[in-house]
Nucleic acid binder design. Structure first.
Length: 269
DNA sequence: ATGGTAGCGTTGCTA
């Protein structure tokens, strides 16, 4: 089973790139963030025509929005709100085998890394605290869970181009990393990308639109993640960052992250 | 130290 997560930054504008991703990587399950579209305008027919008739989406005008697209039937879905806001940032889907898939878009947090003066950073920290508390209270470590999305935090030194220069840059501050780690530790989630790529190697999923030449400067960050609970650890079979997607025409600033799983009854391993 | 780009939906907000 091939899973991909991608902050697409407008699903309507980038439908041709979604088609290209499907054509070139053949995923079974696609999780999108920043769809930036209300549900009534979601391009469900065009996406069904790409081979993904089973869809769950929760959007709003202009901002946020999450979607799960599947080749196979989904058993159900729901959204979760937090921090007393209407933001569509958390979509929960039940897969056929009973695994719960959580597609999460964590707030970016603005520019100033001080929650006293920057409400957006305060919101980000509260959102992370809420995730840690809620997962810890709602599930057990042996539940089958997959968490994916744009977490907007690059936790490890080699998840950013310069650990030293990023200390006070939102996405790599100690306050966020501490909270992301508490969230991860709440149920002992396994970081699927780092399960395959050692921590001493640089790994990025996002490059700023503002760089003159994103590939030459290569000042990336690993903001997008796939985590699995302990029962799914042995099912992990590979991970791949689709770096070339950053060079596609009119790209998102994030690239897709693919994680492959072995499945019960598969012909070969 | 600063400003650089992109999307949405209208001229500002968010990233």
């Amino acid at each position: 089973m091939r899973l991909v997560t991608w902050n697409i930054n407008s699903v309507r504008l980038r439908l041709p790139l979604l088609a290209r991703l499907i054509e070139e990587t053949r995923p079974d399950l696609i999780c999108l963030q920043e769809t930036k579209v209300e549900d009534a305008q979601f391009p469900k027919d065009a996406i069904a025509d790409l081979g993904f008739p089973h869809q769950a989406f929760a959007g709003q005008k202009s901002y946020n929005g999450v979607a799960v697209l599947s080749k196979r039937p989904l058993k159900g879905f729901r959204t979760r709100l937090s921090c007393d806001r209407p933001d569509m940032r958390h979509l929960i889907v039940e897969l056929e085998d009973g695994t719960e898939l959580h597609n999460i878009y964590i707030p970016a947090g603005g520019d100033l890394p001080d929650p006293e003066v920057n409400d957006k950073f305060a919101h980000k920290l509260s959102f992370l605290d809420d995730l840690a508390d809620w997962f810890g209270q709602t599930y057990r470590p042996m539940d089958k869970l997959i968490l994916v999305g744009d977490f907007n935090v690059a936790p490890l030194e080699n998840d950013v181009w310069s650990h030293k220069q990023m200390q006070k840059i939102i996405s790599h501050t100690p306050a966020e990393i501490e909270r992301l780690n508490r969230f991860q530790d709440s149920l002992g989630f396994i970081d699927a990308a780092r399960h395959f790529v050692p921590a001493d190697l640089k790994l990025y999923t996002w490059w700023s639109y503002r760089a003159q030449d994103w590939a030459a400067s290569d000042r990336g960050r690993r903001l997008d993640h796939v985590w699995v609970s302990a029962p799914l650890k042995e099912a992990l079979s590979g991970a791949l960052v689709v770096r070339e997607a950053r060079g596609w025409p009119q790209p998102s600033d994030h690239v897709p992250l693919i994680v492959d799983f072995y499945e019960e009854g598969a012909i070969s391993r």
